[in-house]
Simulated assay, not measured.
Amino acid sequence: MAKKGLIIFGCDGVLIPFSWEKLFEAFQSISLEFGINFLHICPDMQRFKTWFSHDMQNNIDRIRMKNREITYKMNNALHVIYGHESEVFDWVPDIVDKLSQAYDLAVLSSSRITDSVVVSLGKTAKKFNAIVGCDMIGKNRSDPDGLSAIMRQFNVSAINTVFIGHTISDIYIAKKYRLSTAAVAWGATSRPVDIIAMRADRNLTHPSQIFLFGADYIL
C-alpha cells in the first residue's frame, strides 16, 4: 500500500527526553579528556544554554577541536556519557508503530551520531525507514542539513513531508526546504512564548496529537 507521505522526526527533545543537566555534565567530562576545562567556556548552566548549539559540529568547532579524529572521539564520548542512557518516551513505540502503517518515517539528528540514535530508539528503530545522525550530515556541501537526501531517498515532495522538531533551528531548517512543520512542547523549548517564537505551522502540546491527526493535522 502506498504511503500517505513522509514524517521526519527530530531525535532528542522529540522522541527522546532532552536533559540540559546531563548534557552540561557530558561536555565538562569530555572536554577534560582533551585537556580543556569547559567551565572556562561555560561557567554555569545559564551560560551553557545560551552557548550550546543543536548542531554538534558547531559546538566542537567552538571548543577548537578541528581535528577529524578528535571530532569522531568527541561524538562517541558524548554517546557513552550522555546518549547511551537515554531511552525513548513511553508513548513512542505505540504511536510510531501506528504511524508507520500509513507514513514513511525518518529520524534526523544534528547532535548525535547515527549509532547513538539507533541504540536509544531500541526496538522502535526498526519502524523508521531512515535514521540520519550528525556523522552523516554535512558531507555533501549542497545538502549540509541532510533533509534533501532523506526526501530523495523516498522520492517525496515537500508538500507531502512533515518535520517535527523542538528548537528554532529545527523549524528554520525545515522551512528552508518548504516542509510543513510542527513544534513540540516537551523538548528543550518548552515555554509557550518560545514555542510561539519558533513559528511552526502547528504546535503540538501532547504526543497524542501526532497519532490522532498524523501528517494530515500538520499539512
Rank of each mutant, 00 (worst) to 15 (best):
C42F: 05
D115S: 12
I173T: 14
Y82D: 10
K22E: 13
Y177V: 04
E87R: 07
N59Y: 10
V156P: 07
G5R: 08
V117S: 09
L99G: 04
L105R: 08
D55I: 13
S208K: 14
V88L: 03
F211H: 14
T114P: 02
F52V: 11
Y82M: 00
L212S: 10
A158I: 09
T181S: 05
N140V: 07
A77Q: 15
F213D: 05
S169C: 04
F89C: 13
E69M: 00
G187S: 03
K176I: 00
D201N: 15
G122L: 12
I41H: 10
N75S: 14
V184N: 15
K126T: 11
I171T: 02
T114Y: 02
G133I: 08
V162T: 13
I168L: 07
F9W: 08
W91R: 01
S148K: 08
M136K: 15
Q209I: 13
I16S: 12
L99C: 00
Y72K: 09
D12Y: 00
Y172M: 14
V156L: 01
W20I: 10
K127E: 13
N75E: 10
W186N: 13
L108S: 03
I30F: 07
H206W: 04
Y82T: 01
I113T: 01
S19R: 07
G83C: 11
G165E: 03
W186Q: 06
P93L: 11
K139P: 02
R199M: 15
D97N: 05
K127R: 15
S31Q: 10
P207M: 13
S148Y: 12
R68F: 02
N129A: 10
K49H: 04
P17V: 05
W51R: 09
R199H: 12
G187L: 01
G13S: 04
E87L: 13
G5T: 12
K49G: 07
V92D: 11
E25R: 02
K66N: 07
A185Q: 10
F27M: 01
I131A: 09
A125Y: 03
N160R: 14
F154K: 12
I70M: 08
I159S: 14
A26G: 14
F38P: 14
D44S: 09
E21D: 11
H84Y: 01
G133K: 03
N155M: 00
M56N: 08
L212Q: 13
Q57T: 09
N67V: 12
A197C: 07
V132G: 01
E21Y: 14
S19P: 12
I164G: 06
F27L: 02
L105Q: 09
L39T: 06
S109W: 13
A183I: 09
R191I: 11
G138R: 00
K126P: 01
W51S: 02
V132C: 14
I196K: 10
A185S: 10
G187F: 02
A188T: 08
N67M: 08
Y177H: 05
V14W: 01
L147A: 12
L99N: 01
N75K: 04
L23K: 04
T114F: 00
W20P: 03
G83I: 03
A182N: 03
F52L: 06
L32N: 02
A215D: 12
D44C: 15
M65H: 15
V118A: 13
K3G: 07
K175C: 15
S120I: 05
I168K: 04
A106T: 11
H40A: 10
D12K: 01
G13L: 14
A102I: 02
